[in-house]
Amino acid sequence: MIHENEVIMLLLGVGVLIFILTSRLRLKQIPASNILTAAFYIAFASWVSTVLEGLFLEGLFNYVEHICYAVGSILLAVWCRKAFATKKETA
């Protein structure tokens, strides 16, 4: 079963994805940008899985969705540490 909010989430995610892909060069200047973009791609993957979950292979995509949430958050946490570290903390 497809829920409308999941589709909306996915569409919003697509918008952000396009935005990121077009500004890739400038975004590289964000500290630890690879980690942040990786976290986003994984978050996007989870949104995709949520929608696909409603179409077929419900069990698999459910697992994928939740795994993506976990991995994405971990990456996000790592990025938060790295990106906002003061000069004293970074080696």
Binding site: N62, Y63, H66, I67, Y69, A70, G72, S73, I74, L76, A77, C80, R81, F84, A85, T86
Partner: peptide, 30 residues
């Protein structure tokens, strides 16, 4: 079983929040 992942997510977000709070004390910019 997916709850495990959700718990991991929860903990990771908590850690991230802690980091952010620490940084926001010192940071004048950003």
């Amino acid at each position: 079983p997916v709850v495990i992942f959700d718990i991991i997510t929860f903990l990771a977000c908590l850690t991230a929040l802690v980091f952010l709070c620490k940084s926001s004390i010192h940071a004048k910019q950003h």
